[in-house]
């Protein structure tokens, strides 16, 4: 199993093949439906997005409440296809990797190939297990969105499977 550390540069991503298992450490940012809508609106108006998107890893996730004494609550992936309309724009803005669950549109696959990015899937419905890999969590944008706010997560050995690699090859079913 390959271990990777953020930032995920083009060189690191180029070596990944669909179907490969990866353990990721470093910084990832959560963003789901409403955060995508706001980031896309900012980008299309030429405004600065709330986080630096260059070489950024976006995790489609809205965690549950943080229990007392814990870093974060349950934090598994949400359905990626709902972010398909926004993903090409974010990839053009420099996002290098996305983490979520389920298949992507042809347009997203083409954008991944064009930008030499990568789409990972992780263990969906396993939020309690994935929470164990999160060392730090803080809200860095859109706090009014509650669970849909953008969180900066510091993760250690976050388990991933390459679902669509930078050449556009994908696992069947994605």
């Amino acid at each position: 199993m390959r271990k990777l550390i953020t930032p995920l540069t083009k060189e690191k991503i180029a070596g990944l093949k669909a179907g490969e298992q990866v353990l990721l450490s470093g910084i990832i940012y959560t963003a789901r439906d409403q955060a995508h809508k706001l980031i896309a609106a900012a980008l299309s108006k030429g405004r600065k997005p709330p986080v630096e998107l260059s070489s950024c890893v976006i995790y489609y996730c809205g965690p549950s409440g943080t229990p007392e004494g814990k870093v974060i609550g349950s934090c598994g992936p949400t359905t990626s296809s709902r972010m398909d309309a926004f993903a090409p724009l974010l990839l053009e803005a420099g996002v290098s990797a996305m983490i979520g669950k389920g298949g992507r549109s042809e347009e997203v696959v083409r954008a991944i190939k064009r930008r030499k990015a990568v789409y990972f899937t992780t263990y969906a419905g396993c939020g309690a297990l994935l929470a164990r890999t999160v060392r730090k969590a803080e809200v860095v944008a859109y706090p009014h969105l509650g669970p849909e706010a953008v969180y900066r997560l510091e993760v250690e050995d976050f388990p991933l499977v390459v679902a669509i690699d930078s050449s556009g090859r994908k696992l069947k079913g994605f």
Binding site: P67, K70, G76, A128
Partner: peptide, 28 residues
């Protein structure tokens, strides 16, 4: 192999949720 690893994660998640009193899934 990949499917077996995913099922292992699902079973381990059930143990983690019960042990840590955390919801099984963030989508409650």
């Amino acid at each position: 192999g990949l499917a077996a690893a995913a099922l292992d994660a699902v079973l381990e998640n059930a143990r983690a949720a019960a042990a840590e009193r955390t919801p099984l899934c963030q989508d409650t």
